[in-house]
Write a protein that binds this DNA or RNA. Sequence first.
DNA 1: TCTGGGGTCCTAGGACCC
DNA 2: TCTGGGGTCCTAGGACCC
Length: 392
Amino acid sequence: MKDQVIFHIDVNSAFLSWTAVHKLKLGDEEDIRNIPSVIGGDEESRRGVVLAKSNMAKSFGIITGESLFVARKKCPGLKVFSSSFKIYNYYSEKMMELIQGYSPMFQQYSIDECFLDVTNDLKTTPMELASEIKNAIYETLGFTVNIGISTNKLLAKMASEFDKPNKVNTLYPEEIETKMWPLPVGELFMVGKSANERFNKMYIKTIGDLAHHDVNILTENFKSYGRMIWQYANGIDDSKVSVEASQIKVISNSTTLEKDIIKQGEANIVLLSLAENVATRLRKANKFAGTVSVIIRSSSFKDYSHQKRLSNKTTSTQEIYEISKALFKETWKREPIRLLGIQLSSLSDEGDRQLSLFEDKKKGTIDKTIDSIREKYGDKAIVRSIFIDKKK
DNA sequence: TCTGGGGTCCTAGGACCC
DNA sequence: TCTGGGGTCCTAGGACCC
């Protein structure tokens, strides 16, 4: 059997690049990719973290996920731009469409990454095809990508991390020893902070160290993760580029509050708005929820959650709200709250539940009516009276 | 003026059943 | 008085990804 040829395509500093392209299109002179800049959340509402960084910002040691407060300390002249998912979704869709023109064997992995199996689409070398795709994206959309090439998804993904931006890199099995094994173990896909620390304590410093470690010892210590990560370190990954869209398993919405909440009544208003959000998305996905969870983050950054399995699966905003309220009441430790969230899980296609005669049917109709009015006239077309009072 | 939001997957431990 | 044991379902929490 011939080897697969897999591409992993990854937008360089996606949110920042897309913002830059958008601003240039609007007539801005400055390209924010060429200055120390980041995309950051809104600090006023306590969402001030780095979501993406320019190369110059990176050279100051700024990392994604850290607070803007710290980022500014590292780079006093740092320019911060706000995020807009509308813009990101637009460029993401355009790019994914373009890439699918090169092969039907396409899998979107995130808003800015995808895999492409081009095994049966090669008229030139893989390197030439990848360069062609990379250049086509730049010429038609105005931003750069990295493309990693190999014989499986894991190696292609690792390859796309090498030597950014605007590069095509290979990581074929015969190159693992020279290109991947010398890297710090923390750079291997799926090795995060916690595993990295544990590996370092075991004197596993590089990906090569991990690859040469006794897999039985790793399995004893790390269970199924141990075997998986050992396989990754050795470049082993059997997963296929999956063409079918994966079924959504969880729908969640959470929000960091502008100010800590200390009253149940205030929490209820937030819960209602979260319930509206998740329930609307649930109905749009044609799913029923079997479990409702409430997540609380205290002002001291402790997270805790509480969930309930429903005997009858639901799509009702009101029902999800009522359950969330009850869960919150049972869970809340009466300390100031920084974040509230609702998560729907155990999703299924059919609500294998008996409608309790009139009530549920009626509620279902109201929800659907509101959904369709909002679909037509916008989210602001129908607003609960409780939210109107709270509007600034 | 520290610390987003939306996901997936895994595990430990308890409840419950036979 | 010395605590079975296996299977399944459920909850809470945590690690990891972008």
